[in-house]
């Protein structure tokens, strides 16, 4: 498998990258880790005229907690995220996601920004970002804007980012006491794209009631989605399998899977329900154990 001809540039700054995107709009495609994009280029399913490699753009790979958010630079690799001390300490749901993407080599090089911008309908990060109500930071020549994850994943391989913008980072609301998250995915073997994946975040108040939740689902629709009906079903409920199953059914009902090599439609729906329950169980354990 041999790529079609292409051109390549490696801008040294974000401004230079943005300028190239404007100058070569319609031809330019951003390249981050490349582990999603280059296989498609080799299959010639994608034939960008120009690859704009962000590897030399400084300042895009920091991982830090602010007063209200966990901010992850777009070029942080899955492994950077998986091994980040703050994430290991406080964000086990993110550890679930980052540790399960692809395989070790993919995690060494694949980046969160690349993955999110690529928007494969079965990729893992979107599920979590939807569940967490994260925002995606996009920078254009006119400045920066933040797009809520829930408005970002438009369609298969299609996001709200403009072709002249660079995805620079992810902002995830800072974890508070009583909040826990988890990600559960089903894959045919390790390293596979998810047959289905569900991220769950719950917020449980001092009285033991679910006062907030986020459910993100991947692999079972044209693009990952927030299972808002499941979130509604959980509101005000005591955590437990009855509530989780109801949420699972609601999340499954919102899925639009197609029958393919990963299984028939009803199986995939059932897996959404099952994984939702499992993710909620784990998220709840973590929420109850976290005092801020």
């Amino acid at each position: 498998m041999i790529p079609a001809q292409l051109d390549y540039v490696r801008p040294a700054s974000l401004d230079e990258a943005l300028r190239i995107l404007v100058d070569r709009e319609g031809e330019a495609k951003l390249l981050s880790g490349g582990y999603s994009l280059i296989p498609l280029i080799k299959l010639r399913l994608a034939q960008p005229a120009l690859l704009v490699d962000l590897q030399s753009v400084p300042g895009l790979d920091a991982i830090a907690e602010t007063d209200d958010a966990l901010v992850i630079g777009a070029r942080a690799t899955h492994r950077d995220i998986h091994e980040s001390a703050v994430i290991r300490d406080r964000y086990p749901g993110i550890v679930d996601v980052a540790g399960g993407i692809g395989d070790p080599q993919v995690r060494n090089w694949g980046t969160i920004g690349g993955s999110v911008a690529h928007a494969d309908p079965a990729s893992d990060w979107p599920a979590f970002l939807l569940a967490a109500n994260a925002t995606i930071v996009c920078r254009g020549q006119g400045g920066e804007r933040e797009v809520p994850a829930r408005h970002f994943f438009v369609d298969t391989f299609t996001t709200a980012i403009e072709p002249t913008e660079v995805l620079t980072g992810i902002r995830i609301p800072r974890r508070a006491a009583g909040v826990g998250g988890a990600y559960q995915k089903l894959e045919r073997k390790v390293g596979d794209f998810a047959t289905a994946g569900v991220a769950a975040i719950v917020r449980i108040d001092a009285g033991g009631t679910i006062v907030g939740s986020g459910i993100g689902v991947t692999g079972v629709s044209a693009s990952p989605y927030a299972a808002v009906d499941a979130e509604s079903a959980l509101a005000g409920k005591r955590p437990g399998d009855d509530a989780f199953r109801a949420a699972g059914q609601a999340a499954a009902a919102m899925s639009q899977p197609v029958s393919d090599v990963r299984g028939p439609v009803d199986y995939k729906r059932a897996m959404v329900a099952e994984l939702t329950v499992r993710a909620l169980r784990r998220a709840t354990e973590r929420a109850l154990a976290f005092n801020g």
Partner: peptide
């Protein structure tokens, strides 16, 4: 995985 990296990268 060197089959998924361009030489220029």
């Amino acid at each position: 995985k060197s089959c998924t990296v361009l030489a220029v990268q």
